[in-house]
Computed example of a mutant assay.
Amino acid sequence: MTFSEAPLENPPVPRDAATVILLRDTDEGMEVFLQRRVAAMAFAAGMTVFPGGGVDKRDADASVSWAGPPAADWADWFGGTEPVGRALVCAAVRETFEESGVLLAGTAEAVVADAARYAHAREQLVSRELSLAAFLAENALTLRADLLRPWAHWITPPQEKRRYDTRFFVAVLPEGQHADGATTEAESSGWQRPQDALADAEAGRSMLMPPTWHTLTELAELSSTAEALAAERKVRAIVPTLVREGDKIRVILGDDE
């Protein structure tokens, strides 16, 4: 993460983005799916992150077959208009499928158990040859917004040349599905307990951006995916303040954390 002492004179308007904290239960405890971004990425190069990315203008397509909380509810939870709420949920589902192969879709009664059968469509989504709405319609699939929960809202500080207005969702790996690292954006992917991911960062074996570090700290306090899904979250927009203290950078949140 780059750092400058002061905000840019004309900081760019943050782009809407969605990130999904994908979880699973194991005998050793709850794990989270993480990916280390390739060093050539323009944003967060080399960082360990959750799957996610920017909203595509086609993500706001109202024709998407939908099950679960309506777009208006997501707009209330995250702040914004109904089209933005719809676009964020669609981006969350699309980006999770593109980057990890996990598909939060199915029918109103059941979730897809084998997402690998849609591998070609996944490639077309990545290349933008296909929109999420078209993919779902062509395969008679319904977006399952009920598998997602709102978790957090982070906005890139004005010191950065690339800024994102990112809403964080939490979801549990659907039964029968597998998360992979088949994306050109990550050099490695895998599951870790939140506390182990934090230990790697503290030991210098990985790098975490402030939202990722903060989220992993919260998850480390939970014992299961059910507890994560049931957590009562009051989502508020957080714009971290970065302060240089010697050779270190201190991150200050709105509550002086």
Score class of each variant (00 low, 15 high):
2 T>N: 11
239 V>E: 13
48 T>Y: 02
6 A>H: 10
211 P>S: 06
24 R>P: 02
45 A>K: 14
8 L>G: 14
131 S>P: 05
253 L>T: 06
53 G>L: 05
220 A>F: 04
203 A>V: 03
21 I>G: 04
8 L>Y: 13
186 A>E: 09
225 T>Q: 02
130 L>K: 11
138 E>N: 12
176 G>L: 07
69 P>N: 10
70 P>A: 09
36 R>S: 12
155 I>L: 05
242 L>K: 09
239 V>D: 01
177 Q>T: 11
68 G>S: 08
165 D>H: 11
93 V>P: 03
5 E>K: 08
51 P>Q: 07
6 A>C: 08
188 S>L: 09
50 F>R: 14
103 L>H: 06
245 E>I: 10
185 E>P: 00
21 I>W: 13
18 A>V: 01
105 A>M: 09
84 V>M: 15
201 A>S: 08
166 T>G: 03
73 D>N: 05
119 A>R: 09
137 A>L: 02
212 T>L: 03
35 Q>R: 08
135 F>D: 00
240 P>R: 05
122 R>K: 10
63 S>F: 02
57 K>L: 14
151 W>H: 08
91 A>L: 04
87 A>K: 04
238 I>E: 15
175 E>F: 07
201 A>N: 10
230 A>F: 08
43 F>T: 15
97 F>S: 03
237 A>T: 06
90 C>L: 04
235 V>G: 05
5 E>A: 13
22 L>M: 05
71 A>S: 11
7 P>D: 06
183 T>Y: 02
36 R>T: 09
52 G>V: 09
114 D>E: 06
41 M>T: 13
58 R>Q: 11
235 V>M: 02
130 L>S: 07
83 P>V: 12
221 E>I: 00
240 P>Y: 07
87 A>D: 02
24 R>N: 10
172 V>A: 14
120 H>E: 15
257 E>Q: 14
79 G>K: 12
127 S>Y: 00
235 V>A: 01
224 S>K: 04
203 A>Q: 14
246 G>S: 02
230 A>H: 10
17 A>R: 01
137 A>Y: 00
124 Q>H: 13
102 V>K: 06
105 A>Q: 06
248 K>V: 13
248 K>Q: 13
25 D>H: 06
120 H>T: 11
147 L>T: 03
246 G>E: 05
151 W>Q: 08
65 S>H: 12
87 A>E: 03
227 E>F: 01
218 E>Y: 07
124 Q>N: 09
34 L>P: 15
56 D>C: 07
229 L>S: 05
65 S>D: 15
142 T>Q: 03
200 D>P: 03
70 P>T: 04
206 S>R: 09
19 T>S: 14
245 E>L: 09
167 R>S: 12
227 E>L: 00
220 A>L: 05
238 I>R: 07
107 T>P: 02
256 D>N: 09
99 E>Y: 04
61 D>P: 06
144 R>P: 07
165 D>A: 12
123 E>A: 08
180 D>N: 15
136 L>S: 05
201 A>F: 13
50 F>V: 11
125 L>S: 05
194 P>M: 13
11 P>K: 10
